[in-house]
Amino acid sequence: MRPFAFVSPRTLDEAVQAMAGAGGNARALAGGSDLVDQMRVGRRTPNLVVDIKNIPDMQRLEYIPGEGLYIGAGVSCTRTGEYAPVAEHYPSIKEVCGLIGSTQIQNRASIAGNVCNSAPSGDTIPPLLTYDAKCIVVGPNGRREVPIGEFFAGPGQNVMAADELLLELVVPPPPANSSGRYLRFIPREEMDIAVAGAASMIAVDPASKRCTRARIALASVAPTPVRALDAEAALEGQVLTADVVKAASDLTPNATSPISDVRGSVEYRKELCKVLTQRTLEHCLADLGM
């Protein structure tokens, strides 16, 4: 690995200063499951690595009713998935925490790290998109909030400046009477990168049975994770019969621009979007007793 300086700040201010002083060539270290490998193969060559795991603000994991869920950038997937309010209010987020990588990876990797790595295939990202999460970004000019839907700029790219840090993700409270699910397709049973992934989140009015909010987000089928807006529009306001669910799922490829590669062809990925979306919607409806 190419030599670099290393700091492990104990406060957010120290971390921001360290990033600012590195001339744009610092990299924050959360779990390291992406970064350490990228440094080993020379894909990233920072002069400074800033370990953010010892900063209390970045270890915050807290659900506040009415405000939502705060997930600090250093909080591991294991800890996130085991936090009871995550299972209770955000089932698809719990699901991806147990899905990404192996037990060893989940014990280190954080959701924020997955977001900052900004791979189109990042499993934790579609659920965050369906719950309208916000990224809290800090840097030398202070703090700013970026909706997760505006965070990604391309494969491995996002809107953060080189001297900025992702402090935490804030996930608003889910709508009443809602559920969220994520499914991905991989050729193996575990430990693989998604050929395609789909997250759905729906809320249904118990009296009218009509869908009051629908969110569908897809992974591995575009340069960034994407929302399937046409499909969402086909669900909202409707009674979610099997036909409505199927018709909406069939619209998901409209949002995609997949590539053909070793994992799957364009046509295959588009087909997967339809099937995976339909299944996640069916699972959500089952969660809601419908």
Partner: peptide
């Protein structure tokens, strides 16, 4: 690179890949 787990050690009770940990 974190695929095979041959380097697994336990840190504070949790299994981790020591090749992906500084």
């Amino acid at each position: 690179n974190g695929n095979c787990g041959a380097c697994t050690v336990i840190i504070d009770g949790q299994a981790v890949d020591s090749c992906l940990t500084l």
